[in-house]
Design a protein around this nucleic acid. Structure first.
Length: 416
RNA sequence: GUGAGCGUGGCCAAGUUGGUUAAGGCGCCAGGUUGUGGCCCUGGAGAUCGAGGGUUCGAAUCCCUUCGCUCACCCCA
């Protein structure tokens, strides 16, 4: 056992796993591009205040899950626990708000949360996410949800459930929160300390509670959609119509509120059939006040984030990961010093001709060929004194088990 | 932050009423054709039993602490 281990909640992603992940990422990127989203990458850490102002001081994520530290200059920095704040900060800082609107962006980046590791939950994990900024039309809500759906669909996850809700806008929110507080007030004493705190500080979250004292109260609790402003109501109805038109099935969940402070109007979540609320694989919503909160002009936005690890696990379970066809790979085996030097040059030539080539390890021929098998090489080129003397090489097809001697020129021609 | 289970070579893993050199399999390296793979055969390297401390003549096997892993809660992607 070595004395160093990867930090808790982190892991090394070994080749087989990384190939699966890259396959998933490719699908995400391709679909995002197809929907007109452009790639963006933001810093791994940001000014700590960015997350306080956006994600929200009262959220669990900011309250107890951030990696926050002072750098050597005394500035408080935080490893991003989610992608949206950084993307919105970049949108403002880099002048994307002065480019044609809406701006459609997508990212694939690691996130950091100091949580107790568990199935599908890590301290460092990757998210694929999209943000559509500068458009409040419900059609773009539908577009974002459709993109999410297409991604999951392409991994065969058509049995996931889409939950949607509208939690209203800045105008309608206060009245709704009052209604919620009034509704729960008579029961406040019987609620858990956690829920009592939620009721005071983050009222919406009470709807999210799994506490058995709260559960029976939820069905009759005031519904946010009954308190929507006319504008938000119209937005909500229009979104549902669009989803219907796109043939995307959904369930309206009046208790869906999401864990981040910045959400307004549309919120949605995709959950697997078995675990339901337990293991969300993709979730998002609209955040029309976020850009303004960061000092920009009032700018609507909507997006989602998807857990790469969770999707990889699901896709693996279903066997829906597509592995690219195996490319021609050549192992250049050599016998003797002269042949080794010659092989070194040949491997280089092959690569420049676009063929993957690996020089055999400094061992006997038998061992080099065994190695060729172990790295899934499709061919072996064998060079020894005879070949050098004749200025030829032996090309062995490892799947057929046949080989023949030829000039280097015809080798390149044959493989290229 | 709470609860439960677990931690033996790279991987899987036997071994627990404490007692000589800690099984086996996979993988790895070598040899079996002084230049030939995938199967097979033979041999070899590799762990002091997560770490630290304690009990004991003696511990992988008992006790304490600690780190980590897994699962659940909380929360989230």
């Amino acid at each position: 056992m070595t004395s160093f281990q990867a930090p808790r909640g982190t892991t090394d992603i070994l080749p087989d796993d990384q190939r699966d992940r890259l396959a998933v990422q490719r699908v995400c990127a391709n679909l995002a591009e197809k929907f007109g989203y452009a790639p963006i990458l933001t810093p791994t850490f940001e000014d700590s205040d960015l997350f306080l102002r956006t994600t929200g001081e009262s959220t669990d994520i900011v309250q107890k899950e951030t990696y926050t530290f002072d750098d050597r200059g005394g500035h408080s920095l935080t490893l991003r626990p989610e992608g949206t704040p950084g993307v919105c900060r970049a949108y403002l800082e880099r002048g994307l708000h002065n480019t044609p609107q809406p701006v459609r962006l997508y990212y694939i980046m690691p996130m950091y949360r100091f949580e107790r590791p568990q199935a599908g939950r890590f301290r460092e994990f990757w998210q694929f996410g999209v943000e559509a900024l500068g458009d409040s039309d419900p059609a773009i809500d539908a577009e974002v949800i459709e993109l999410a759906w297409r991604v999951l669909e392409s991994f065969g996850m058509t049995d996931v459930t889409l939950l949607v809700n509208s939690i209203g806008d800045a105008e309608s929110r206060p009245a709704y929160l009052d209604a919620l507080r009034d509704y729960f007030a008579p029961h406040a004493d019987s609620l858990s300390p956690d829920d009592q705190r939620r009721l005071r500080e983050n009222t919406l979250r009470v709807l999210d509670s799994k506490d058995e004292e709260v559960q029976p109260l939820l069905p009759d609790a005031p519904k946010s959609i009954d308190y929507l402003s006319d504008e938000s109501k119209e937005h909500w109805n229009s979104l549902l119509q669009s989803l219907d038109a796109l043939g995307i099935r959904y369930e309206i969940d009046h208790t869906l509120v999401r864990g981040l402070d910045y959400y307004t109007r549309t919120v949605f979540e995709f959950v697997p059939p078995d675990a339901r609320r337990q293991s969300t694989i993709l979730a998002g919503g609209r955040y029309d006040g976020l850009i303004e909160e960061l000092g920009g002009q009032p700018t609507p936005g909507i997006g989602f984030a998807m857990g790469i690890e969770r999707v990889v696990a699901e896709a693996k379970k279903r066997g829906t990961l597509t592995s690219p066809d195996r490319r021609t790979t050549v192992l250049v085996a050599h016998i003797g010093d002269a042949a080794k030097a010659s092989g070194l040059r040949l491997a280089s030539e092959l690569r420049r001709a676009g063929i993957a080539a690996v020089l055999g390890p400094p061992r006997g021929l038998r061992s080099q060929l065994r190695y060729a098998t172990s790295i899934d090489a499709t061919h072996a080129v064998i060079i020894g004194d005879d070949e050098i003397a004749n200025d030829t090489v032996v090309l062995r097809d490892l799947s057929q088990g046949e080989q023949s001697e030829m000039s280097r020129g015809s080798l390149l021609e044959l493989l290229g």
